[in-house]
Amino acid sequence: MPGQIKLLLVDDEEAYVNVLANRLRRRNMDVTKAYSGSEGIQALRAQDFDVAVLDLKMEDMDGIEVLKIFKKMEPRLKVIMLTGHGSAQAAREGLALGASGYLTKPCELEDLVDMIRKTASKEV
């Protein structure tokens, strides 16, 4: 589909990834789900994405670490971070590492969609 945003969703909360993927797909996005940091890295290796939505708190890998790897693998990839409240520190660290923005969980879907669309349309 032309104009469709290719999105990679990385979060170890499977239920959250699933429901979010369903909703984003309805909003005209090509969503690939990854249930862990390593799955995300594999997915990125397999294909290109416009935007990645990355949870900063995952069981297998720290989101910041995943962000670093993403940026190394694909410097043009735009990353939006999802953080828990009180993790503003980590989010700022992520921004310094090249992330495009962050949202605190739980977030309004419309905010997320807005941020994804704006980020995708921006040229780096």
């Binding site: 909360e13 429901v19 979010l20 909703r23 409240h85 879907l109």
Partner: peptide
């Protein structure tokens, strides 16, 4: 911290039903 995730999922599932 523990509650945030389930709440997020519930809200999103509700959103999904709305969708």
């Amino acid at each position: 911290h523990e509650i945030n995730n389930p709440v997020a999922i519930m809200v999103e599932e509700a959103g999904w039903i709305e969708d």
